[in-house]
């Protein structure tokens, strides 16, 4: 199927993009920046094209199961990275952000068996105009939070490098020759990544609530998936509030951003298992 080929192309393209960003981080050359950004755009086109092709084949939005959602999540991560790169003009986090996207992409392409990739009919609850709004906004939010996790990793590595330099009393690299952005720049990139995702997450919760009201007559049901989505939102709300407090920038917030991304991954892949283990029923299991 053309969509499958496009997803495979995007997968290998993503790996090449991560390598290009890593090279950019090491050699700090303009051509490396153009190459990596260009590759990221190509990956986005391939992944987005794959989603469009699958959507056309299925006759619906390709956002209805974990396989499709993870593919959309990867596309959203690449898109959010490109937006952030344009907004901050800092390309250094690309290796980390798109590295996360590559790892995410391993799940649908390497872990999901072909039988589970098949296009299946929808349950009636999923036949709604709210599907692309709710799931699409959630994918964009998750993508931005994946990019924030990449920025947090960049900040942590930068912090570790500086600590080591201080410990060994090595001279600082001149700013213009240092391919790694300064800690405050890493912090700003991290903040902007969260800022990119937070309104989408809020919108995803809002659209989900309206859809739930349409389908089940309950806009909030304390369903395990809903509750974990709220936990994601609360963690990033905490992030934004802590950033306003003295002494909370940099390392601590980077750790919180990684924790936040952990809640994102758990909501995506862990909640069903938790529901089974605890014996909770979920309306979000189809």
């Amino acid at each position: 199927m053309p969509d499958d080929w496009l997803f495979i192309l995007a997968f290998w393209g993503l790996l090449a993009t991560v390598i290009a960003y890593a090279v950019q981080l090491l050699v700090y050359r303009r051509w490396a920046g153009w190459l990596s950004s260009g590759l990221a755009v190509a990956v986005l086109l391939a992944q987005g094209g794959g989603l469009v092709a699958r959507g056309l084949r299925a006759g619906r939005w390709p956002l209805t199961d974990v396989y499709e959602f993870t593919l959309a999540f990867v596309a959203a991560t690449v898109l959010m990275w490109l937006l952030l790169e344009r907004w901050t003009r800092v390309g250094a986090g690309g290796a980390f952000a798109l590295g996360i996207a590559f790892l995410l992409d391993c799940y649908p392409l390497l872990r999901v068996p072909p039988a589970r990739r098949a296009i299946r009919p929808l349950v009636p609850a999923l036949r709604s105009a709210w599907l692309p709004l709710h799931v699409g906004t959630a994918a964009l939010a998750y993508g931005a939070f994946a990019v924030a996790a990449g920025a947090a990793l960049l900040l942590l590595v930068r912090w570790a490098v500086e600590r080591r330099r201080e410990r060994l009393m090595l001279p600082a690299t001149p700013l213009e020759a240092d391919p790694w952005p300064a800690l405050d720049v890493c912090d700003a990139v991290l903040y902007r990544a969260v800022v990119l995702g937070y309104p989408w997450m809020s919108l995803a919760l809002l659209c989900g609530a309206v859809w739930a009201q349409m389908a089940w007559g309950r806009y909030w049901n304390w369903d395990i998936k809903e509750t974990w989505s709220l936990i994601i939102w609360l963690v990033y709300t905490l992030f934004l509030h802590l950033r306003l407090m003295r002494g909370w920038r940099g390392l601590r917030l980077a750790l919180l951003a990684l924790f936040g991304f952990g809640t994102v991954l758990f909501t995506l892949w862990g909640v069903s298992g938790l529901a089974r283990a605890v014996g909770l029923q979920s309306l979000h299991v189809y």
Binding site: W222, T227, W228, I231, L234, L238, H241, V271, L274, L280
Partner: peptide, 21 residues
Amino acid sequence: LAALLLALFVIVVLLGTVVPQ
């Protein structure tokens, strides 16, 4: 206080997903 309450809220809400309701 806002930060503390948000953190507390996360914990309380999380408890509801690890104990059957």
